[in-house]
Computed example of a mutant assay.
Amino acid sequence: MASPAKKVTYSTTKNGQGNFGGGGGAMNSRSGDTFATQAQAVSAGVVASYFDFPAGIIRRIPDSLADQALRMDDSVVVDIDLARRQHEKLIMTLRKLNVGMSEMEPDEELPDCCFVEDPAVVLDGIAIIANMSQPGRANEVIGIRRILKDDLRQRVVEMKEDQKATLDGGDVLFTGREFFVGISRRTNQAGASFLAKIFSDYNVSSINVYGALHLKSMMSMAGPDIIAVGSSDYAQRALKQIIEKANHDYKTVTLPDDDAANCLFVKKTLIHCTQEEYPDSYKIFTERFRNVSRVALPNSELKKVDGGLTCRALLVLKTPKILK
């Protein structure tokens, strides 16, 4: 793993206080700090550029998702037609934002295959092909590997070199400055260490995840240097660890619903929950991001199989932006 980050003062915002403009941006750093790191030295403009994704991968939903996809609650019933309509809205939104989406057909043998975030972690022209802990998902990497390598010209690194390592992309939160990797039921410390070895230009901190499938089940990036986080005890425990390990001061937006904290920031546009699904969290998004382009998208059906907005797209920066 990378060397432990030195502790910094972590500045957060509270519900109902202030709002964010177009790009967000870091809180003011303390002028007396003498331990400024590479990540802290990165300009706000460079950080913002990490969210200007020119390309991505999506996959259509197989019929088998309704009955066979993995889920924490086996009692839920998925409306597969509604799930497809909701997924289509995300696809169309990304295309309207001029993200060049590589579209994959569904595979009935892979009921979770539409959750393309998990099989790979991509940054700086490097794509880690993950060892996912669920054996039934292993073949999901095949088509994604081909697109990343042949179409998007990424350098592929196989995590299978370390058979003990497991990693799901849903546990990897990249802020534009550093990585936080959730240690969860799907990702272990060996997986986090593998990622740290490959992306050695960045600080990588492990965050213990409780009460949720993935780290990003309860937090995500809502803009450059802005973390959206749920209000549950589990989410706040994870945030506390980030506070202690971060190499930068981040703004936070605390939402009453953990699920609503899974959002996407793409090309200066925030994609978040709908009013119908999470009215209280939706209100906070509208109040706190009133000067930001926003799109509200439904996720009710894929949430039933533990899928969030981030899970459904693997977004890629074609051009490496290695911080030197």
Rank of each mutant, 00 (worst) to 15 (best):
V181N: 15
I198M: 04
G223L: 07
P119T: 09
I126S: 07
S206V: 04
S231G: 15
R145K: 12
I198K: 02
I144P: 05
S193N: 14
L215W: 15
M218W: 14
A165N: 01
S220V: 12
V172P: 00
Y210M: 01
F194Y: 04
L167F: 10
S206H: 07
Y210T: 04
E161K: 00
R186W: 12
L152K: 07
I243D: 13
G170L: 08
E117N: 09
V204E: 07
R185V: 15
D151K: 10
A196Q: 14
V121K: 05
G182M: 02
S206C: 09
P135M: 13
A190F: 11
A212H: 15
A196N: 13
I126M: 08
R185H: 12
R237V: 13
D168Q: 08
K197W: 11
D150S: 08
S200G: 06
V229H: 13
S217E: 14
K149C: 11
S193H: 13
F174M: 00
Q236I: 13
K164D: 10
I243S: 14
F199Y: 13
I242F: 13
Y210G: 03
I126D: 07
A127S: 12
M218P: 02
I207Y: 13
V209F: 14
R153P: 08
I227A: 06
T175H: 02
I242D: 02
E178T: 11
S200K: 09
F199I: 04
I183C: 07
R185L: 14
I183Y: 15
Y202I: 09
V122A: 03
A165R: 04
M221F: 00
L173K: 00
M221K: 00
I242L: 12
A138L: 11
R153F: 01
D118Q: 05
I144T: 06
G230D: 12
L239E: 07
D162S: 09
G191D: 03
A192Y: 02
V122L: 01
M132L: 11
G125S: 05
R177Q: 03
V204Y: 15
L213G: 04
V172K: 03
E178P: 15
K197R: 14
A165F: 03
